[in-house]
């Protein structure tokens, strides 16, 4: 089985606060990996480190993607190569139209891949179709990016970006938090649509609600800045029943 992502001995901090402490993690091509862990364990920090967020300073260790060291790569380069993070709290950008933003992003990627860029009409057709599938009001395409969007609308918009960009490695940070059941189903369907046995998913959750709809292959537990356990899907139930404390030193 070939590896999509290999994270080795990763130490990362935000400001003076040391958060990841020698984290090791391997993600397989075509598999759905889940990371669970208590609040404040460093899950979002890990996802930010992978996409090159400026908050996170990596002091030691490497992140490999498709065999290539991307630890110090620019964020846009990682994105163009197929790394995607659905943010826990997507930022609002007043004055930038959502449709314009989406098209710019899609065409940047197409250009990078040597494909022809989509014109406005082609793009809109595609975006509307996908938005409909997600149960997202197409009116949101004409609004400013995320501005005044509800929590559910923001998550749907993140999912729309994922569907449009068709990334190879998809990190979903708490995509299920704050979603009603319809939104959760719609977002899950979006994920399953892209789950074609080639892409790799890293689903970060601490409610595990989404796992009723998306079947994980592996479950990892992140605690105190390290992966402390890796198992199959059955671990989810065990964690739900017994909590993280039950893991002990296992």
């Amino acid at each position: 089985m070939s590896k999509m992502v290999q994270i080795e001995n990763l130490y990362a901090q935000i400001g003076e606060k040391k958060i990841l402490k020698g984290l090791n993690l391997e993600l397989e091509e075509g598999k759905v990996h889940v990371i669970m862990g208590p609040n404040g364990a460093g899950k979002s920090t890990l996802s930010k480190a992978i996409v090159g967020h400026y908050d996170v300073e990596i002091t030691e260790g490497t992140i490999r993607y498709k065999g290539e060291d991307i630890t110090n790569e620019e964020p846009e380069t990682r994105a163009l190569k197929g790394v995607f993070l659905s943010f826990q709290n997507p930022v609002e950008i007043p004055g930038v139209s959502n449709a314009y933003f989406l098209r710019t992003a899609v065409n940047a990627k197409r250009k990078f891949e040597g494909k022809e860029e989509l014109n406005a009409a082609e793009f809109l057709r595609k975006a509307r179709e996908l938005a409909n599938e997600l149960g997202m009001k197409t009116e949101l395409l004409n609004r400013s990016l995320n501005e005044g969007f509800s929590g559910g609308e923001k998550k749907r918009n993140e999912t729309l970006q994922m569907l449009l960009l068709e990334p190879d490695f998809i990190i979903l940070d708490e995509i299920d938090s704050g979603l009603d059941i319809d939104a959760l189903k719609a977002v899950s369907e979006g994920i399953n649509k892209l789950n074609d046995g080639k892409r790799t998913f890293l689903i970060i959750t601490h409610y595990s609600r989404i796992l009723d709809y998306v079947k994980p292959d592996y479950v990892h537990v992140l605690k105190d800045g390290q992966i402390v356990k890796t198992a199959g899907a059955e671990l989810v139930e065990k964690l739900e029943a017994e909590g993280y404390a039950a893991l002990g030193e296992s």
């Binding site: 846009e76 930022v91 930038v96 933003f101 710019t104 992003a105 990627k109 990078f112």
Partner: peptide
């Protein structure tokens, strides 16, 4: 806004272009 800049870049929009989008906004 650094967060806004990063969001755009994380979608594959290069720094200069992202900057321009925010300035235009």
């Amino acid at each position: 806004d650094e967060d806004q800049l990063f969001y755009l870049r994380s979608r594959g929009i290069v720094y200069e272009e992202a900057k321009k989008m925010l300035i235009l906004a």
